[in-house]
Computed example of a mutant assay.
Amino acid sequence: MASANRFVLVAASLLALVPAAARADEEPLLTSPADPTAAATLAETLFQDGKRLLEQGAFVEACTKLAQSDALDPAIGTLGLLAACHEQEGRTATAWREYGETARRAEAVNDERGAFARQRASALEPELPRLLVRLPKGAEGIAVFRNGVRLSPDELGVAQPIDPGTYEIVARLPGRPEFRATVTAEPRKIAEVEVPDGNRPAPVDTPKKDPARLDPGTSNLSTSKGLGPRKVFAIVAGGVGLTGFSVAAAFALSAGSRNAASISIQESCTTAASCERGRELREDALRSATVANVAFGIGAAGAVTALVLALLPERAEAPKPASRTGFQYEVAPWADRTGGGALLIGKF
């Protein structure tokens, strides 16, 4: 897999999105009705504070300042930098939406920064986690909440992009029991929640009998219908492969966003401290890219091992040494910084 920072190097510098003097000559889309001059002055102060905090790596504080600034005096540069801040913070769906709005603002006034914002939004979109809440028939008037915030009807029954993390889903309908569920949103995956029909009792999980208890002389692996030890190992290896790919994707995304921030800071820094922060972000991006490569190699090794184990037939019970014949084989996974796979070793 190509290094994540190599992809970001071909993207335009974040400086093109948020130049140092951007707010001085921009026409805000909205104006504070109370005191436009005071609102613009406070927005400029918050913008500069947010930019400084972003250069220092204080992403939470920086995002708060930039969000306050844009609320007072909406501007292309402010929202673009806020999107980059949320991307650094790991709130990818929020950043995706803000990049899209930045592009719309820029394109409305023929501002060239819209192209960069659109590019960043396109890069983030495949990585977004999504949440799908399914409702039963006859659920008109139901109220569904995600972490305490009510979802609109348009957000139900459709996979909606959300930030990575854990969410509590609550569904309320008059005359029916309240439904609660907790889901975890992960990059490139859809977290699904199905609200049950309140008119029917919720299904009760029935404990399954343990085959080993029925026959102490046999194991779960050997008595599972159609699932021998080799198939079980294939499932385990497949799980390792999926985990490796997920970790690789997460670190690749982190490497890309940190490298983009490094380019922006190093091209606009005016002090030794801010320039040093840019170099630190660059080194963090390289480390994240290395982890992504290693994780991808492990994922590839697991996937190939699972495929080989799934395709090869189950070996019968080992024959006596005197009559041992036929093809004997072993599967050994391998991985390094650039890839992975599995070795099939055998003899007749």
Rank of each mutant, 00 (worst) to 15 (best):
C85T: 02
V304W: 02
F296T: 03
T305S: 13
E89P: 00
K231C: 08
P33D: 12
E89T: 04
R279L: 13
K137A: 15
S268P: 01
L344R: 04
P36T: 05
G157S: 03
P211D: 09
L46D: 07
G297M: 07
P211C: 05
E194D: 14
E87V: 01
A21T: 08
R6E: 15
G297R: 05
D35T: 07
R188E: 15
P36Y: 10
Q48R: 14
V308R: 11
V240F: 12
T166G: 06
R6F: 12
V18L: 06
F47S: 12
P126A: 06
D336W: 06
Y329N: 13
E192T: 02
L72E: 05
A139D: 07
R146Y: 03
P136H: 08
F179R: 05
K137Y: 08
G339H: 04
A332T: 15
Q88K: 05
A237D: 12
F47H: 13
G340L: 10
Q328A: 15
V232N: 13
T223I: 05
S3E: 09
R134D: 01
P333E: 09
A71H: 05
G100H: 05
G278D: 04
F7M: 14
T305G: 07
T271E: 01
Q119F: 15
T166P: 02
V8H: 04
L9Y: 11
A4F: 10
L17D: 11
A289T: 06
I190G: 01
P174C: 09
V236N: 11
L227T: 13
E89Y: 07
L221K: 09
R150P: 01
R258H: 10
S32L: 12
T223W: 03
A103V: 00
S254Q: 07
G278L: 03
A121H: 10
G175M: 07
T338R: 13
R120Y: 11
E155F: 02
Q88N: 12
E101N: 07
L42I: 09
A106N: 04
E55I: 00
D25C: 08
V183D: 01
R113I: 03
L312C: 03
F47K: 03
E61K: 02
V236S: 11
L82Y: 02
R172F: 04
G198I: 03
S13A: 09
G226E: 12
P28A: 13
P196V: 12
G50Y: 04
